[in-house]
C-alpha cells in the first residue's frame, strides 16, 4: 500500500495530470452549463498534454536541438511527445471552436446556456 502512495508522490506530474483529467471529464460529462462544459473539455485535454510532456522529459538532458555538434541521442530529451502535444492542441482548438459555435446557435434560439433547460424546451416543442 505504502508503495502505491510513494509511487503517486514520486510521479507527482502524472498524478496531477490524472486528477486534472478526472476533473475535466466529469465537468464535460455532468455540468449543465455549455460554457463550463467547454472549459471541462479544455481541462481534460490540457491534462493529457501535461502527462505527455512529463513523460517526454528526461532528467538532466537538453532540449532536442543539436548544439556544439553533439549528435548522441543520449544527451537530449524525447521530442516525440512534444510533437504529439502540438498536434493535440490543434485538434482541441478546432473542437473547441465548433463547440463554441454550437453554443452560440443554441443561445440565440433558446436564450439559455443550460443544456438541461434546452432539452426541456425541445421536448415541450415536440408535444
Amino acid at each position: 500500500m505504502s508503495e502505491i502512495f510513494s509511487g503517486l508522490f514520486t510521479n507527482y506530474y502524472e498524478t496531477f495530470a490524472m486528477v486534472l483529467f478526472g476533473i475535466g471529464f466529469t465537468m464535460l460529462f455532468l455540468h449543465p452549463n455549455m460554457i463550463k462544459k467547454i472549459m471541462g473539455l479544455n481541462i481534460m485535454d490540457t491534462a493529457v498534454y501535461l502527462f505527455l510532456a512529463a513523460k517526454g522529459y528526461i532528467e538532466g538532458r537538453k532540449a532536442p536541438i543539436i548544439t556544439d555538434g553533439d549528435t548522441s541521442a543520449m544527451s537530449y530529451i524525447n521530442p516525440v511527445p512534444t510533437g504529439l502535444v502540438l498536434t493535440g492542441i490543434v485538434v482541441s482548438v478546432s473542437v473547441t471552436a465548433v463547440m463554441l459555435a454550437m453554443t452560440i446557435r443554441l443561445y440565440r434560439r433558446y436564450h439559455t446556456l443550460d443544456i438541461d433547460e434546452i432539452f426541456r424546451i425541445v421536448r415541450k416543442e415536440e408535444h
Binding site: F21, F25, L28, G88, E125
Partner: peptide
C-alpha cells in the same frame, strides 16, 4: 439548422468528445 438538429448535434458532440478524450489518454 432547426432547433432539434442543433441540440441533437450538441449532445452528439459532447458524448463524442468524452469518447475521444478517453481514447486519447
Amino acid at each position: 439548422d432547426d432547433g432539434q438538429s442543433v441540440v441533437a448535434s450538441a449532445k452528439y458532440m459532447i458524448m463524442s468528445l468524452l469518447g475521444s478524450g478517453t481514447f486519447l489518454i
